[in-house]
Structures are given as structure tokens and as C-alpha cells.
Simulated scan of single mutants.
Amino acid sequence: MTSVRKPLLRDDRNGKIAGVCAGVADYFGIENWLVRIITLAALFLGMGSFVLVLYFAGWIVLEKKSKHEASFGAVSNGQGDDSVEVKTQVWQKGEPPKQALQHLSHKFNSLELRLRDIERHVTSSTFQLNREFNKL
């Protein structure tokens, strides 16, 4: 099984200043606030100039996530992202289990309603009549 590594990008949608911390958090699959706290702690605990240089280098070098998705044809179908990530640790990225269960329950309920509409249409007399006319 081959795993494809996603590129390190600036997350301009979830970022506060330039999206560098949000991009690093997305790359490693951890929460944004944790990366921001680590960055600020390193900034104030003696690694200030090094952290600033790395941050500005990331700001300049890393491509924006929205621009990258647009250039590689990440087409959204209007329904958003269908995946649900459940977090098991506080620092992991994703939804808490209770919220994920509610999210999935809502998705399944909407799919159930769509399926009922399709079944109602297929079993209707209008559908049967149109099908018979198309056979002629």
C-alpha cells in the first residue's frame, strides 16, 4: 500500500498572519493552536531570530493552499469534504467523537431522504409510463 505525502503548503484560509503555522499543522495532522503555541514559546525562549527567519522563509517559499488546489484541479462538487476525521488525542486534528457521530448521522439522514426520493420516482406510475413509451 503506497501512501502519497501531501505537500507542505501555507493554509491561507485558517492562518492568522500568513498561514505558515496552519500549513505546518495541516501537514503533520495536529491542531493549529498547538503549532502556534510552540512557535510563540520558541520565539520568546531564546530562539527568536531563528523562528522569525524560518517563519518569513516559509511565508515567501511556501505556496498558498488555495492557489495549489486551483492549479492542480481540486474540483469541489458543492457538497464539501465528505471525510470525517475523529480525534483521539487533544492535539490531533479532527472532530471530537460526539461531534463526528452527529456529523455522520446528519449525512446518513440526508442520504436516506435522497434515496427515498429516488425510490418514490422509480416506483411511480409516471416513470413506468415513460419507460413504456421509450421502449416503443
Rank of each mutant, 00 (worst) to 15 (best):
V51N: 07
A22Q: 10
V84T: 14
G73F: 03
I37M: 03
I38P: 00
A42G: 13
K87C: 04
Y55H: 14
R36Q: 09
E69V: 03
N77P: 11
F56V: 09
M47Y: 14
E63H: 05
G80R: 08
R36H: 04
K65G: 01
E63Q: 11
E63R: 14
L43N: 10
V53I: 09
V51C: 10
E69Q: 14
Y27R: 06
C21Q: 13
K87T: 02
I30T: 02
E69M: 13
G15L: 02
Q79G: 12
L40C: 06
V35G: 02
L45N: 15
V86Q: 03
A25I: 06
V61E: 13
E63P: 00
S66P: 09
I60T: 05
K67T: 15
V75S: 11
K87F: 01
V86P: 05
A25C: 02
S83Q: 12
I38Q: 04
D26W: 05
I17N: 14
G29I: 01
G19N: 13
C21S: 11
K67D: 15
I30R: 00
S83V: 12
V84P: 02
I30Y: 00
A74Q: 13
S66H: 06
I60M: 13
Y55T: 00
S83D: 12
L45C: 15
Y27G: 01
T39N: 07
S76I: 06
F50D: 12
A25P: 08
R13L: 15
L52W: 06
G15P: 04
N32H: 05
C21N: 15
V20L: 11
G29V: 01
F56R: 08
Y55E: 00
Q79K: 14
I38D: 01
A22C: 06
V86Y: 05
R13Q: 09
I17L: 13
S83C: 09
G80T: 09
I30D: 00
F72W: 08
S49D: 11
G29F: 04
G15Y: 02
M47G: 03
A74R: 15
S76G: 14
G19P: 10
A70I: 05
E85H: 09
A22L: 07
K87L: 02
F56A: 11
D81T: 04
D82T: 14
D26I: 01
Y27V: 03
W33A: 00
K16R: 12
M47I: 02
L52R: 11
K67H: 15
V61G: 07
G73Q: 03
G80A: 12
K87A: 04
A41L: 10
R36V: 00
G19H: 14
G80Q: 08
G58L: 07
V51A: 12
A70H: 08
G23Y: 11
H68K: 06
F28W: 05
F50M: 08
L34C: 02
L45H: 15
E69K: 07
G46M: 08
F44L: 09
W59P: 02
A42D: 07
G73C: 04
L40M: 10
A70M: 07
L62M: 15
A25T: 08
V24K: 01
L45W: 09
V51K: 10
K65A: 06
V61D: 12
G48I: 03
A41H: 07
S83I: 08
V35M: 06
I17W: 13
A42C: 13
D26A: 12
G73L: 06
V51H: 10
K87Y: 02
G58C: 06
K16W: 06
G29H: 10
V24P: 01
